[in-house]
Design a protein around this nucleic acid. Structure first.
Length: 648
RNA sequence: GCCCCUGUAGCUCAGACCGGUUAGACCGCCUCCUUGGUAAGGAGGAAGCCGCGGGUUCAAAUCCCGCCAGGGGCUCCA
């Protein structure tokens, strides 16, 4: 595609990358071996440690190369073919498969090598040969008597890079259009700055834009170096926010009350913003019919990664986004041009059956909660206006999440050329350098896509908010509006997630907190979403009642608090609150009761302050006034709370 | 999905390579003492299908095979 075939082979496969399983073949009169002792800890189990025959046989010494492990089945198949061909040439029915690692300088891992040899054996047996596979992982003695004819000793190298393509596994209902299209698309990557300057990504000076550099590196080089688990995983458990659920499928999580409080706070925040934006809020089903014509065609755009739900004799798929329900609803709605732009919003679970190896904590689960807005517009002009409007709330929400983010846009070349001013206007609005990918051919349903990404501690990037101009699905789902002239018209659709999934937001804020921690800043969750905003610590049992009275004041302000009424030392209560990153920790003792002023440990400023409960409540209210009041979803007395996964 | 590593008390982790008393430790939990002033007060106690299922062995947390889960790499991320 990009290169001539011969050139591309050279570029793609450096010498050590070529798969060259090595094999030495000896046509022998008789063969014998004896397994002496294990060479590997997990050597293959053997029924008989020795074997001897006087019969003629074709002995194949085989060393699997590292490169064979890329496609063991393919390597095995070709190896078996080579052996079968050689056997037929010398008219031999008896075949010995002998593992001999010393033929290779870069051998495969034992497990892969054994797997390969077993597959070779299986194939040859299937082809009707009498096969003996010599046990793997032992030091062995052997005897061989080479026949000495011209074809009796040969060495071979398997070159898997020359393999013909075999049938790709295709699941029913799947076609590879999207993948193929993406492979064929050409893309160029640039950095756009707010002043309108365009620079190729590798020529841009990233000084002062370290995270942008990391993001670009991730997107273009796909460089992965992480060894450690992502830090947010330990944090989410210790803060008792989310945890794995062993009783469910991989990638499905449970939310104890603290985490659920945070989750709901975010959901409510995003929903309010969408209602303010003028959205119609809906709820649509979680499962959909594979056979529905529009859905069938939509599914064919993507590899099948769905959860399948059986109902009676029929299979349904769990939705992987909110698009279906909204499109189906819109397709039956009577929409006038007077109602455009029409905004539909939904926040609900979605399911993507990601490959097991792709799952990673909250960065990539299989079940997640996605806020999704679709904005129906008449034409490209209106779409561009909508993008400009949407950018405002996406930027606002991203800033409220208090995390560093990098913005990128992916634009069809043709669209870019016609709308250069629009794109540059957006970058100006973003106010910092952004990465822009310009692609030649449309490989998905969008011709324009904005992404708000975070870069984590492992230097991996993940997309949160996104805005896309969809030019395909209005037609696919037969969504139309009635124009001024009374005629049905086909609209464009903006697909937007204002914030990204709630799970990924949590991933983002925890990774951000971890980055802060490494810089010596106390890690925190944004005040408006943190489950517990205030902890009241009565110094002794006599003061619990007073703390409860103080709590009632906080209730009036809609502030989430706990009272540590456990029988432990003050030092321990403070430690417990600090471990949970509680932003305001108030000691409630006789002094406070007498003066009416609390001693407040303020996490953000690492200092104590004296203030009344009303002053504290005012301060928190003021800092969180943009967010709906979310209740704490567990009893405020800590003595009444079980421990789900927190430490103290 | 493939490859590598890991899975022991609620948590974090010893023990495993080299099979053999009653599987340990910190934190947490429970009981008692202590009623405390800004990141761990003291004493005692309970708590384990050693991930699951097979196998080898007189004997398995330990060795072998399979499966599941978590992490990393590849691929992928609509």
């Amino acid at each position: 595609m990009f290169h001539t075939p011969s050139l591309s082979v050279e570029l793609m496969f450096d010498a050590p990358e070529v798969s060259e399983m090595r094999m030495l073949q000896i046509h022998s009169d008789g063969f014998a071996f004896e397994a002496k002792r294990k060479a590997l800890k997990n050597a293959e189990k053997v029924d008989s440690k020795s074997y001897s025959t006087k019969e003629s046989c074709l002995v194949n010494f085989i060393a699997a190369e590292t490169s064979d492990t890329k496609n063991i089945a393919q390597a095995a198949k070709m190896t078996a073919q080579m052996i079968a061909q050689a056997a037929e040439e010398v008219k031999e029915k008896k075949i010995i498969v002998y593992p001999w690692v010393h033929l290779s300088e870069t051998p495969a891992q034992p497990g892969s090598a054994l797997k390969l040899l077993k597959l070779v054996e299986k194939q040859l047996v299937k082809d009707g040969f009498d096969v003996l596979r010599i046990p793997f992982g032992w030091y062995k003695s052997f005897m061989i008597h080479c026949k000495g004819h011209p074809l009796a000793e040969r060495s071979k190298v398997l070159d898997i890079s020359k393999a013909v393509e075999t049938d790709e596994e295709v699941t029913e209902g799947e076609d590879l259009t999207a993948i193929k299209a993406e492979e064929e698309a050409h893309s160029k990557f640039y950095i756009f700055t707010p002043d309108g300057v365009v620079t190729e990504v590798d020529k841009f000076d990233y000084t002062g834009h370290e995270e942008l550099r990391l993001y670009v590196k991730y997107e273009t080089a796909k460089d992965r170096t992480a060894q450690e688990p992502p830090p947010h995983i330990e944090l989410m458990k210790n803060l008792e926010l989310v945890d794995y659920e062993p009783g469910s499928d991989a990638g499905n999580f449970r939310w104890p009350p603290r985490g659920y409080t945070l989750k709901r706070a975010i959901e409510e925040r995003v929903t309010r913003e969408m209602v303010d934006y003028g959205a119609h809020v809906v709820q649509t089903p979680l499962i959909y019919d594979y056979e529905h014509p529009s859905l069938k065609s939509y599914l064919q755009r993507f590899p099948s990664r769905q959860y399948v739900v059986r109902s009676g004799q029929r299979d349904y798929f769990a939705r992987f986004s909110a698009c279906f329900g909204q499109f189906l609803l819109l397709s039956q709605a009577t929409i006038s041009y007077k109602q455009l732009p029409l905004k539909m919003f939904e926040i609900a679970p979605s399911f993507r059956r990601e490959q097991s190896g792709e799952l990673a904590g909250m960065r990539r689960p299989r079940a997640f909660t996605m806020p999704d807005i679709h904005e129906i517009v008449a034409d490209v002009k209106m779409a561009k206006e909508a993008v400009n409007n949407q950018i405002q709330f996406v930027e606002k929400l991203m800033q409220e999440l208090e995390l560093n983010y990098e913005v990128s846009f992916r634009v069809l070349k043709e669209f870019y050329e016609e709308n250069e001013d629009f794109v540059k206007g957006i970058v100006k609005r973003i106010g910092k350098p952004v990465m822009i990918e310009i692609f030649d051919e449309r490989y998905a349903y969008f011709l324009f896509k904005g992404e708000w990404n975070v870069v984590d501690d492992q230097e991996k990037a993940a997309c949160l908010g996104t805005i896309q101009i969809d030019v395909e699905n209005a037609e696919r789902f037969d969504i139309k509006y009635i124009g001024e002239d009374g005629q049905e018209k086909r609209p464009l659709i903006l697909h937007t997630s204002p914030s990204g999934s709630i799970e990924r937001i949590l991933y983002g804020v925890l990774e951000q907190a971890n980055k802060d921690k490494k810089k010596g800043i106390k890690p925190m969750l944004p005040l408006w979403m943190t489950p517990v905003q205030v902890r009241l610590l009565p110094v002794d049992d006599m003061l619990i009642q007073y703390a409860i009275e103080l709590g009632k004041v906080l209730d009036r302000y809609g502030i989430r608090y706990e009272i540590d009424d456990r029988s432990m030392t003050l030092g321990k209560k403070i430690r417990s609150a600090e471990k949970l990153w509680v932003p305001y920790i108030c000691v409630v003792g006789k002094r406070e009761q007498e003066t009416g002023e609390l001693a407040v440990r303020i996490r953000r400023v690492k200092e104590q302050a004296k203030m009344t409960i009303e002053q504290l409540a005012e301060e928190i209210s003021e800092k969180t006034d943009f967010a709906p009041k979310q209740q704490l979803l567990l009893p405020s007395l800590i003595s009444r709370q079980p421990i789900f996964s927190r430490e103290v």
